[in-house]
């Protein structure tokens, strides 16, 4: 395995929706196995679009290579063996319980060449629930869960598939402070343990800075900044991309301290 290039490389990627191109030939630094990269940027910057394109869900041109293999143009089932995408929300009013929903995620299509036996499948679903810390909700109906609990179930469904590349679209937006940190730590641990490439859309820059190995900052369908958190999140990029004045300092533990001060120019953000 060691001599195989296990990075995810994105180059000259163009994508969008029917008749509306959102991203034009963007290239990103390679994503390494075990790394967590946060995708940040203002609303409508193209974060979800990029995620969906990387999951193979949008028509795209250019190149998305994983482990040396080109994925653009391949059928969805091939993407799905390597890449799993967690959308922002779970649909409402679904009469499944938590465990059933995770089993269903596992059963949808086999990750490897062979489908695991039923008992093994049920066991791994339970293990994921335990790992995410929601085993006590296993037999609860999805209809009875709070928004935050649903988000955790949603996360469990995608983690259960053990993909090479995990794409999380705002996975902590409905969570309380403690669960935000727990989820980020879990994702970080699993990335390291499994050698998984994780891309995660976040709005909270402090959390992004604290838990990411890399940052990709998007703006209006293009790449505004990339690099380590300290390289990408600076008062200059925050002013340019978000239109806010902020001070960014490196504090004692080597962590970034981001203090947002004010909106720079009322029109800038909406221009």
């Amino acid at each position: 395995m060691s001599d195989v290039d296990d990075r995810l490389r994105v180059s000259r990627l163009s994508t969008g929706y029917r008749g509306r191109r959102i991203m034009q030939e963007i290239s990103l630094p390679a994503f390494h196995a075990g790394d967590v990269t946060s995708l940040v940027g203002p609303n409508a910057a193209g974060k979800s679009t990029l995620m969906r394109a990387l999951a193979g869900l949008l028509p795209a041109t250019g190149s998305v290579r994983l482990q040396g293999r080109e994925l653009i143009g391949r059928p969805l089932v091939e993407w799905s063996r390597r890449v799993t995408y967690m959308p922002q929300s779970l649909p409402q009013g679904v009469a499944l319980n938590v465990l059933e929903s995770v089993i269903s995620a596992l059963r949808a299509s086999p990750m490897g060449a062979t489908a695991p036996q039923r008992a093994a499948l049920e066991r791994s679903a339970v293990e994921v629930l335990e790992r995410v810390g929601i085993i006590h909700l296993a037999m609860e109906s999805l209809q009875h869960l709070s928004g935050g609990q649903r988000q955790l179930v949603s996360l469990a469904q995608v983690l259960a598939r053990e993909p090479r590349v995990l794409l999380l679209d705002e996975p902590i937006s409905a969570l309380d402070l403690q669960y935000q940190l727990r989820v980020m730590r879990l994702v970080h641990e699993l990335a390291r343990e499994r050698g998984m490439i994780v891309l995660i859309v976040l709005h909270d820059l402090s959390i992004a800075a604290r838990w990411s190995d890399g940052i990709v900052m998007l703006s209006r369908g293009g790449v505004a900044a990339t690099g380590t958190p300290a390289e990408a999140i600076t008062s200059e990029t925050l002013a340019r991309v978000y239109g806010v004045s902020a001070s960014v300092e490196c504090c004692a533990k080597g962590r970034l301290q981001i203090t947002i001060e004010d909106v720079l120019d009322d029109d800038a953000a909406f221009r």
Partner: peptide, 20 residues
């Protein structure tokens, strides 16, 4: 039946799970 159940988890999610 398995694919129909997975579709209940949302269209994008089901597609990302490899369902056409």
């Amino acid at each position: 039946s398995g694919r129909l159940t997975s579709l209940r988890l949302g269209e994008d999610r089901a597609r990302s799970f490899g369902i056409n």
